[in-house]
Simulated scan of single mutants.
Amino acid sequence: MVAQFRDRTEAGKQLAAQLMAYRDRPDVLVLALPRGGVVVAYEIAGPLHDALDVMVVRKLGTPGQEELAMGALAPGGLRILNEDVVRARGVSQKAIDWVAAREQRELERREHLFRGERPPYDVRGRTIILVDDGIATGATMRVAILALKQQHPAHLIVAVPVAVTTTCDELAALGCEVVCLLKLETLYSVGGWYEYFPQSSDEEVHDLLKRASREQAAWLQKKAPM
């Protein structure tokens, strides 16, 4: 395995170059899956002059093998399960509910931390660019897509640096445009395709969202007619 991206910042810049058709469009909103997706999305929203916000979802890790997603949660109580993983690992309904309750608390904590009292952007009728730093099983991305579709965006683009080819096809089948720089037959670790892949902190995410908001406001003010 040879790393294809120096870090999330470089990956975001490469994705931005593929998304320039959406630059300067007031209907476009960039939504990032925290935490790592926010670092990538910040490099997209800036050059495109688009607003940036978070789409908080939580992976449901398989008991005893937390990195393996058995499902995911999104705001509004939406839950999806990877039935193949649940069956293969023999996960009980009680264990699923326990993990889901724990992750629901963390989802609510992060939403408040990253957004405060500010409500989420209205996505109805808008073009949404949904960003993460990579897709392995696709569980968190799928639940984010399903949650967004309930709000009726006009168009939904999934933008990621690296993902499994079959997962990209599955997301496209959900009605999404998929922009992926590196498609692979198998993907055991997203971080393996980066030279530098530290865990992003809550503070870093919060800071990037604030910076993006200031930059967007400055651009809108500059664009406004005198």
Score class of each variant (00 low, 15 high):
I145R: 03
K59E: 03
A95N: 05
E67K: 13
D53K: 15
E103A: 10
L113E: 03
H49S: 13
D53S: 15
I128L: 11
G90N: 08
A88Q: 12
I135V: 13
E83W: 05
A74R: 07
D122S: 15
R142W: 04
L68D: 04
E43H: 12
V131A: 01
V39A: 15
M141V: 06
W98F: 15
E83A: 12
M55I: 10
L81V: 08
A41Q: 06
L78T: 09
A101Q: 12
A101T: 09
Q104F: 04
A144M: 04
R89S: 06
L148Y: 03
L52M: 06
D122E: 12
G90H: 10
W98P: 07
L130D: 00
G76E: 03
A136T: 04
A74M: 06
L130V: 01
D133W: 10
V91H: 04
A144T: 02
P120N: 01
A41L: 08
L78P: 01
L48R: 08
E103F: 10
E108I: 13
G71V: 02
V123T: 13
G134H: 08
T140M: 11
R89F: 12
A74N: 01
H152F: 13
M141N: 00
A100V: 05
I96R: 07
S92R: 07
M70W: 03
G138F: 03
K59M: 10
A144P: 00
G77C: 01
L68Q: 11
R126L: 01
V54L: 12
V143A: 07
V143F: 08
A69I: 10
L68C: 10
I145D: 00
V39Y: 13
L52P: 00
V57Y: 11
F114G: 00
Y42A: 14
A101G: 06
Y121V: 13
R87E: 03
V56M: 04
G138W: 03
P119F: 06
T140G: 08
G76F: 07
L146A: 10
L78S: 06
G90F: 11
R109W: 08
E43F: 08
E117K: 15
W98I: 15
I44N: 04
A72Y: 01
E67H: 12
L81I: 09
K94N: 05
A144Q: 02
P119S: 06
L68Y: 10
R89H: 11
G125Q: 06
E117F: 14
G76Q: 06
V56K: 05
P63D: 08
G71K: 06
E117D: 14
Q151P: 00
V40W: 07
R126T: 00
I145G: 00
E111T: 15
G64M: 12
E111Q: 15
R124M: 08
N82P: 05
V143E: 02
I135W: 05
V56Q: 02
R126Q: 02
D133K: 13
Q150L: 15
Q151Y: 04
D50N: 15
G76D: 02
L52S: 03
V57W: 11
I145F: 01
L113W: 09
G71W: 03
P119V: 05
R87Y: 02
T127Y: 02
L148N: 02
A88I: 07
Q104R: 13
R79H: 09
L60I: 09
D50I: 14
T62L: 07
T137G: 05
H49N: 14
V57H: 11
Y42S: 12
D133H: 10
R105H: 11
I44P: 00
